[in-house]
Design a protein around this nucleic acid. Structure first.
Lengths: 121, 121
DNA sequence: ATCAAACATCGATGGTTGTCAATATCGAGT
DNA sequence: ACTCGATATTGACAACCATCGATGTTTGAT
């Protein structure tokens, strides 16, 4: 049984775009918007949360098709978008493709949005 | 001079949707996606960041049209979407409409996305 | 070598969305 | 009352996107 681990290109990192501290450059805004677009769909959010709540925070396509009640091609399409945005990683084991959560990526985006309000402190 | 302060409906709060701890319900996913959609456009992200970087974290439409190089109706349209999503508040002073950042809302969304990875700590 | 299962890709389609010009509304000053 | 300046709304259009069925590709098993 062969195990292939594919690492997605996350070089277009949004790591250090403050959003709230200084005006975003056109290219930074474009990059961040592309990242947020991956999270701006209810199906993709559900897929993310289902994967995150699964054993080892990973799941194969066959486990995901039924919960979201969509066709397999559609699910594959969404998983590809989430993977390209860096929120999931793909590893193939046998005929199955396992998608795993990349929590650091979610945290990275969360930090980008932080505005530093002192809510109820 | 009359000052009107409008408070936007944020009752559709995404406050306590964990995203990473348990599968999102259909309705929660729908709500969160709607919120993320407001942040999934480069123009809106630039508008947000420009407002956030302005004096008192607020700006009027006339100050925003030129930086983004778009028509006034288009800018008003984007500001409306950001306001309805709770990221901006609108207060009218005279003929001018001032849009101010709501940092708590950004932090709220950021917390929703947090996955709790221990990146390089 | 062949077959079946899991997944990806392709092409098409209906719905959504960002943009603008034109128009409407609203407030301040004359 | 009238005008002007700032903003919101409307209608239209092109580009984008989520979805599906059909098909292609890869892998393990017979």
């Amino acid at each position: 049984m062969v195990t292939t681990l594919e690492v997605t290109d996350v070089s277009a990192g949004v790591c250090c775009a403050p959003l709230v501290h200084e005006p975003l450059s056109t290219v930074d805004a474009e990059r961040l918007a592309h990242t947020m677009k991956a999270l701006a769909d209810p199906t993709r959010l559900r897929l993310l949360s289902i994967v995150a709540a699964s054993e080892g925070q990973e799941a194969c396509v066959c486990d995901l098709t039924e919960p979201v009640a969509l066709s397999q091609p559609t699910v594959s399409h969404h998983l590809k978008i989430l993977t390209e945005a860096g929120f999931l990683s793909r590893s193939k084991r046998g005929t199955w493709a396992y998608y795993a959560l990349v929590p650091e990526r979610l945290d990275e985006v969360a930090r980008t949005l932080l505005a530093g309000s002192h809510t109820g402190v």
